[in-house]
Design a protein around this nucleic acid. Structure first.
Lengths: 341, 341
DNA sequence: GTGAAAGCGCTAACAT
DNA sequence: ATGTTAGCGCTTTCAC
């Protein structure tokens, strides 16, 4: 889909050579002002757009960044996390004239094949990867193939750049909140523990409990998978050991817990206090039943893209991506490899 | 990002010419079986992938479909509608070896410029457009430029292909439900009325009210914009005219209404019955307060992409996209232009 | 059935 | 400052 106008054609109409037109389009020097103006004029009149494929065949760049969401993330699609993330990434891309190719590794095709399709073929200048497990083979491939990429979510490996929120700190705040409310039997519904955010939020729970000198028995910790069902199952277990407060590592799971608690004839927050986690505006509807931790997902997306475009030498990304702190949750940015924080 | 292997290189290693390798890759005839096998062998060994840009420079096809979401859809990002839609589109694309380019017209760049960037340059073979208003200039451009495209959402114009749910019917069912419950003063919070789904759901409300011989005064109809805030404002107006039931054209607005109703000291559904609209699993958490209409968004996405790929002569799309009926809401597909229903 | 050769539309190195 | 030329890696006639 494109007009069949070519550089050649524009050159002819402007009475110059292809090179000159090319220079004008690419804002290169060595074109006299009047000529430049005349060429722009023609370009505007004709609505000419250079052919992307032809251009990238020679420049070896496509101005397309990929967004890869691995695994069957149906569960993750239950909340607006990805919408917000994509919104942020898009914002950055639009601002810099980049395009975004979205790849969900969910279809009938396996992840290895998807990887080949997406990354091979040279469609992409770089990649943003969301939601990875520890030691994800995808990451290994990207490193091996020397693909510029940025992760959304912490990844404990020197060579990997990423953007993340301070999951440990945020979880600590949440649990600390419950402890200050006077609760001593505080349970937690964790995310999958092979995922960074899952593990980190549990660590935050542990730290807060310890800080308040509260005992952390195994029965107070139930692993979930971010789904509502897992939240319900976990809540049943927690109720059976008599907790008076629950920190759920995601709002979705908190909602599941809420259901179970109410079904048990208990009131929230009077009988059981509940804190969720995520930026899910809808959760506000459940107030005062549910308290939640906000995470700046949209910004995380924008910053991830900023970082990536920086890697690609996107001309003047200018300012390094800012270190943003929002609400109780803050961002950690690993700017250059090795410089963790 | 791609290996620097070329056709030439493969040809050399296989002891054949470029043409032959090309034929093998593209599954063309006129290659003897043993040769074909040997070439595949080398390709597999080396992990060769043809360079996408070079290929589309000559074929004039990219195997990329665009997904355009016009306007600042922040409000629409509050619910998982787009996540599900993208999931469906992706499913189809993955199955047919197509890629997906996501364009949110939200950045600092205006829609006209975004259109040029995205559609010009020949990046895309076709486009899926979501969430359009009546007489959207975007649609006019696409028609004018002869871009193959499919809309998600009804569009009253002969030349446009689209996929949609039966909004009128679904709304009718929702309101009918309330009427059968014995309510006579039923109000509705509509979506934006310059959007098809908004207008259609209102029409469904009207039809159901009429069928039950219930008076429809203007005060029973309040226009919202799918946002929670608008739902709250609308609910206040409706409560002030003494409705006992509300049909909200989106779950988000229903949640807003729920808040307001509860703040007014009323119980849901005992004092005021509430029905929402959308496929928002989280809304289930609000049961029994909130009843909602499910829409098969994921399927809508998949079907839209099916239709588009059909337009692109994607070789054997085989079966025409099925006419799916799910839950109370059903799909209407305009398969070929002119053949509505 | 296979190879040779001509481009697709663009950029970039080299002349002028 | 501008034009000429040689490809980028692939598909596709057209010979053989």
């Amino acid at each position: 889909v494109s007009s069949s106008l070519t550089l050649e054609e524009i050159a002819k109409r402007a009475g110059v050579s292809r090179s000159t037109v090319s220079r004008v389009i690419n804002d290169q020097p060595n074109v006299r002002a009047p000529v430049r103006e005349r060429v722009w004029q023609i370009i505007r009149e004709t609505g000419y757009q250079p052919h992307a494929a032809a251009r990238s065949l020679v420049t070896r760049r496509t101005r397309i960044v990929g967004v890869i969401i691995p695994e069957a993330v149906t569960t993750l699609f239950t909340d607006p996390f990805f919408s917000h993330l994509l919104s942020g990434i898009t914002r950055t891309c639009n601002a810099h004239g980049y395009h975004l190719m979205l790849s969900l590794f969910n279809g009938p095709v396996g992840p290895e094949e998807m990887y080949r399709r997406v990354v091979g073929g040279g469609h992409l200048d770089g990649v943003v990867v969301a939601s990875t497990r520890f030691e994800d083979p995808l990451i290994e491939h990207l490193l091996e193939d020397d693909v510029p990429f940025v992760l959304v979510g912490r990844y404990p490996e020197e060579r990997v750049r990423y953007v993340d929120i301070d999951n440990v700190g945020a979880a600590r705040i949440a649990v600390d909140h419950l402890a200050r409310l006077g609760h001593s039997r505080i349970g937690t519904i964790t995310g999958p523990l092979n995922v960074c955010s899952g593990a980190d939020r549990l660590e935050g729970y542990r730290q807060a409990m310890e800080a308040h000198r509260l005992p952390v028995s195994d029965s107070l910790i139930v692993e979930g998978d971010f789904s509502e069902e897992s939240g319900m199952a976990a809540a049943r277990r927690l109720l059976s050991v008599g907790v008076t407060a629950i920190f759920a590592a995601s709002d979705i799971m908190a909602v599941g817990a809420l259901k179970v608690i109410r079904e048990a004839g208990l009131r929230v927050p009077q009988d059981v206090a509940l804190v969720g986690f995520d930026d899910m505006p809808i959760a506000a509807a459940l107030q005062p039943a549910l308290t939640t931790v906000r995470q700046p997902v949209e910004q995380m997306g924008a910053m991830a893209a900023d970082l990536l475009l920086g890697l690609l030498d996107c001309p003047p990304v200018g300012r390094p991506p800012p270190q943003v702190l929002i609400l109780p949750t803050k961002l950690i940015v690993r700017e250059s490899c090795g410089a963790l924080q």
